[in-house]
Each structure stands twice: as C-alpha cells, then as structure tokens.
Write a protein that binds this DNA or RNA. Structure first.
Lengths: 291, 291
DNA sequence: ATCCATCAATACCTGGAGCGCATCAGTGTT
DNA sequence: AACACTGATGCGCTCCAGGTATTGATGGAT
C-alpha cells in the first residue's frame, strides 16, 4: 500500500507541475521527491505523471488519482481533529440509565443541561431499575445512572442528583383532602394505604417503613405496588391514599389531591448520579462538570 | 501526520483487542506493534486504547477513530483500484470535437459505440470547425476530433471515419427534380448553384471545384455559404440548387428534392477521426479499438 | 548551428526509523 | 507463592528515506 507521505508528495507535484518547486514546498530536495513519485507509480502500477526532462503533465489516471489523494488527505486531517474533539468530550455519546420515577425529576434537568452545554454529545437513554443500572455500569454498557441510593461496589462513584419531599396523594373526596397546611402523618393511622413493593420498589418501601416506625404510625397496607404511576392510578380510583415523591405530582391524574406532609426529614427522597470510577468517556467527564 | 501502516496496526489491535494476536495477523512481532500504536497516540495526542498488562480496551476516542481509520483505509484501497480502471480506459472521459455537418453522420455512430462498449466513459462533446479542432488537439484540450481531411502536423494521427456520396438538392419545382436515376453533372451547367464558402467551408469548396473541373461543368455560383443547412434553406426558397453530403438529407427541409448524382468518385466526401500521436488517455485508446 | 540554462533522473552516501530478539514488569490464576 | 500471560522496554541490526553531486536531455538564445 502507498503512504500518506507519497500522497502529499503527489498532490504537491500535481499542483506545481514542477518537481523542484514541489520539493521546495515540501521542504525537501528534488531527487527523493522524484523517487517517492516513482515508488507511488510502481505501487499503483499506473503512470500518474507524464514527464519529459522539460515538462510535467498529469495523465488522465493522474487526474483521477489526484481527486482521490486529496480526499484521503482531507479525511485524514478530519480524523485527527475529530478524534481530539472526542477526547475532550466536545462530541461523543453518553449512555444514561434512569429509573421510571426519575424521568419526572432529575432526568429533565440532565437532558437540558447536556443539550445546552454539550450540543455535540448524544445522550442515549435506557430505562432500567436501579439494580440493572448498577450491573450495566459495572459492565461498561452504561456511562451514567440515575438511581436510588443503594450500596455499590468500590468501582462506582456517586453523587446526589436531587433530594425531594413526599406528598400525600388523596382521592379528591377524602376527608383529609381539604385540610390546611402540612398534613400530620398521624392522620394516616388506620387509613387504607397503597404501599410500595418491598421487592421491585425496595428503596421506597424501606424509606416509608422507616418513616412510619419513626413517628409510630401504622396505616393499613392494602396493596403493594412497584410503580408510582400504578399507585396514583389506584388513588384516583379511590382505593386508598399514598405517599409519593413531589415530582410525581407532575403526572396528571384526575381526582387526586396532593397535600404536603409533615415529615421528620422534609426531603427524604434521594436520587443519585452513579458512574464508574475508571470511566474513560471524556464526554461523561464534561457532563459531570456541568451538573 | 500519522501513517497508513499505523492505521492498519490500530485497526488490527482494535479488532483483536490483543497486541500479540494482532501482531501475528500483521505478520510482525508484538514490540514494534506496541510502538506503532504509541507513535499513533502521540501523534494524535489522544489515548486510543486503554491497556493494562492484562486487558486491552478501546477508549471512546479510540472507538471514534476506529471508524475513521477504517474509512480512510477503505478509501485508499478504492483509490488504488479506481486509478487502475482509469489507466485501462475502463472508466474515464474523452473530449470529442465535431463539425456541425458530422453530427448527421459519424457522430451518432461514435456515440452509440462508446455507449455500448465503454459505458463507464463519459463523452464530452464540443462543436468546433476543423481548424479549431486541430488546434485544440494540439493543445491537449481535445482527445478526438471529427474533421474534414486537412493537412496536419506530424503529432496528429488520423483515420477515415466515414466516406459518403453527394446528393443534388433541388427545389421541388425544378425541372430536374423529377428525373430518374443518377443525375448527370452536365445538367448543372448554367444553373444557379449555391456554393460553399472558400474560407469557412474550404474543404467542400475545393472538393466541388475539383469535381466541376474534372467533368468540365461550370454552374453559376450565386452565393457562397459556410453551412450546409444554410444552403438547404436557400434551396428550399428556390434560390438555386446545390450538392450536399448524403447525410444532410436527414435534415428536414420542406420543398427540397434530393437526387443521386453521377460522380467520378461515388463517395468523395470524407470525414476523419484525428487524435494526438502522444495521446495518453487510455479511454481514447479503448474507444479507438472499438471504432 | 552552437552554447547555455533548466529540470528531472541517477549514483552514492549517511543517519535514523523500524524491525526482531531478549527481557522486564504487572496481573490474574492455580 | 509460583507460574503463565501479556504489554512495555532496551538494544542491535538492517534498510530505507533523504541529502549531495552529477548526468542527461531539451528548449531557447545568440
């Protein structure tokens, strides 16, 4: 195969139609330039230049090859520049995992920030539960996760993304729906309560269990559900009341009243950003700097 | 700038993710391969591969560069193949000059032949008078000319393209228009005759002068015209009669009767193909082999 | 017609780049 | 803890790219 140096040599000669001047342009002397052209022609087994001792002309094959040579050189320069932009995180792609609930809170901010600060970076989204995200992060198929707090291996780093409060979700006709100010948790005692599944929504389950134990209130758990929006659907149908993250009030369900709740910790719901400690995606570094 | 060899090295390592195996594939040993990759990375000032002593992984920049590297290598191979096709005349372009009159005879054949035998070759047409064609051939701006016979420099080669006869062009009402069989030239004696210009249509002028002298007939030259179609227009208007090449009967003019003529030489009108002896256009060689 | 300037090709030489061999160094496995 | 695997490094050698000097051919000037 020919050499890129041979291509630049050929382009110079083809443009100057003069070996000595082309050699000057290439900061070399004429004899090695002549040899490079000969080598190129031998390599291609095609005569590119028609040269007497007095004149240099392009053959038709040379004219055709000139176009190709320029294209290859242009593309080589482009590749060198493009790879540097990738290495600085200016362009690239970030695979981001998110939990269904986070799509109402932190995910929007993340997407807006990325769009504004790193327009050249593509965000590839995947909805995954926390456990699957941590697995994917470890395997390298995910660059960044939006997950509920959970113990992780030492190879993962994390940072709080958002903290938010809990709202009581009440059927519109519920007697507590009209109350003023934060609702005391005591009012939940004995109520039909739509609880999070201890398996699929372990984080919320344990969070609420902890809160209820702290204030010593025991609602009646009538259902265990995995998804916030399933819970809201049941609230809307009058099957009970629930505690949901603030951002869930953005989901539009008819017949639901959201009411603030008096909690020991006003913002107990955490969402974390997680990524590999040995991350090598420069675009991720750039994004983390902006979040 | 990096080297194509470095690109192939990088692609091999990126595909194998294993220096020793990649080196085998490249028919070399591992140490120089490691060094080529290092040189490439230094040149780009970007880390392409993340390698511990145990594993080799592509960085995001490396993934991006792999795409570019493959593209450059593919294009280089394509360039090598394409230039060879041009050098064999399989593809390319031929600049062909033609006289206005030849567009009714040889030009059509030429275009059909080229189209059928060399579908990859583009025919670039220019209408030029013979003298300008010969000049353009000498300057190299034309590859092939369709010209009337004319003395040329030694650097031009030629070959007859077509020979054709002459027809008498008569106004429809002319008394000779109804005659049977070839018309004797004697019937032209004393007739109003539309003659070719001795300057712009020198070839036809001298051809007819020679014929009239040989048979000792002297028509009355009422006009001198450069173009066959101008002559036919005047014939059609009843301004006289004329002798025109056979192929001119393809031009549709109302009110003209074409009649064969009894000539000393039945096919005195010649049209030549002309090209440079030092032609270097392989597509032209290929075309000439087919004509 | 002769001489000279020009310009690509050739001959020869030299320094450095690239290769292979041998070895080192780090890591995962048994 | 020993070993196997694998990429990095050190070193010597070869060969090639580039430089200098020269040749050879050609077109233009006198």
């Amino acid at each position: 195969m020919f050499t890129l140096a041979q291509l630049t040599s050929f382009v110079a000669v083809a443009e100057e139609l003069h070996f000595t001047r082309a050699a000057e342009r290439l900061s070399m002397t004429q004899p090695p330039l002549s040899r490079q052209i000969q080598l190129l022609e031998n390599e291609l087994r095609v005569q590119l230049l028609d040269r007497t001792n007095r004149t240099v002309r392009l053959t038709p094959a040379g004219r055709a090859f000139l176009v190709e040579a320029r294209r290859i050189l242009r593309q080589s320069e482009h590749a060198a520049l493009a790879v540097r932009r990738v290495s600085t995180g200016e362009v690239g792609a970030i695979a981001v995992g998110f939990t269904a609930a986070s799509s109402y809170s932190a995910l929007g901010d993340l997407l807006h920030t990325a769009q504004a600060a790193l327009p050249g970076v593509e965000i590839q989204l995947q909805e995954l539960v926390t456990r699957d995200q941590l697995k994917a992060l470890g395997e390298g198929s995910l660059d960044l996760g939006l997950v509920r707090p959970m113990s992780t291996g030492a190879d993962l780093l994390s940072r709080p993304a958002v903290r938010e409060g809990l709202l009581a979700a009440l059927p519109a006709g519920h007697r507590a729906a009209g109350g003023r100010g934060p609702m005391p948790l005591g009012e939940l005692a004995g109520e039909d309560f739509l609880m999070y599944s201890p398996i699929e929504a372990r984080y919320f389950h344990e969070l609420l269990v902890g809160i209820f134990r702290a204030v010593d209130v025991r609602p009646t758990f009538t259902q265990y559900l995995a998804q916030v929006h399933s819970i809201l659907a049941l609230v809307s149908g009058g099957w009970g009341l629930a505690l949901v993250p603030e951002s869930a009030s953005l989901m539009r369900h008819g017949g639901i009243v959201f009411r603030e709740v008096d909690l020991p910790d006003p913002k107990p719901v955490e969402l974390n950003l997680v990524w590999r400690a040995t991350n090598d995606n420069p675009a991720l570094d750039a994004l983390l700097r902006h979040l």
